[in-house]
Amino acid sequence: MSTASSSFIDRRTIIDWLGIAPFLIFALMFLIVPTLYLVSGAFFNAQGQFTFQNIADLFTPTIMSAYWISIKVSLASSLGGALIGFFLAWAIVLGGLPSWIRSGLLTFSGVASNFAGVPLAFAFIATLGRTGLVTVLMRDWFGFNLYSTGFNLLSFLGLTITYMFFQIPLMVLILTPALDGLKKEWREASEILGASNWQYWRMIGLPILWPSLLGTSLLLFANAFGAIATAYALTGASLNIVPILLYAQIRGDVLHNPNLGYALALGMIVITGLSNVLYIWLRMRAERWQK
């Protein structure tokens, strides 16, 4: 009796697991194993011996500066995107603007947040490049040469401005529902208790938004950190950021050590992974008050 029921359970369990077997196999083959392969490869030398040498070799000036520029661009564009995106979302939710502005901006954000890659680079070259519209208009109308100020689209600043084109809309899309969730009563309750507008935002509004704000920022960070198409189309191989360095390494082993390439990839995973761990940790702290 008992064996019969237990074997019945066993069969059911097996069928249950068979149901997601295709997904598990797919995830293993095309996501998990390839990643683990690189991660483990980072700890072996060409002769197949275990070593930390590859990791140590990352600490050369070229590679370090590549990481540093990547981090700077990702951080700047995600913070910039978060800030501007926040204000836009705030304006359409709480700014008392006509409702067509809200729907218009949301529709546009849906499009712009997916407008990335090579065409985005083209758009900014046509705008802020040496013969771009804005550059030319500034020169012709105001006699102002943008490039004489040291500005260069193929630089940290240029890349940051370009990335923000899809970072801002992403933030708007995620923050708008979060802002909608702020109850009018919270604001009124704080106001009647004597709080100023600023005190309301500091003590109630922002702490409540904090998880979504932070989560999106870190998503934006990872997004920018791994992006290559825009940067590559914008600068060719001239800007030394990690994804481009890795691209060159994959193409032609510019580091002259395949396993150093693995270490480079590992470094990227560690940084995006860390940003996620940080996110999860901060979110748990910020969400003590949630169900």
């Binding site: 704080s190 009647i192 109630i204 008050w289």
Partner: peptide, 14 residues
Amino acid sequence: IGMVFQAYALFPNM
């Protein structure tokens, strides 16, 4: 002035 709202309106993060 003190005010009590219909839907509680306690600050959820406090």
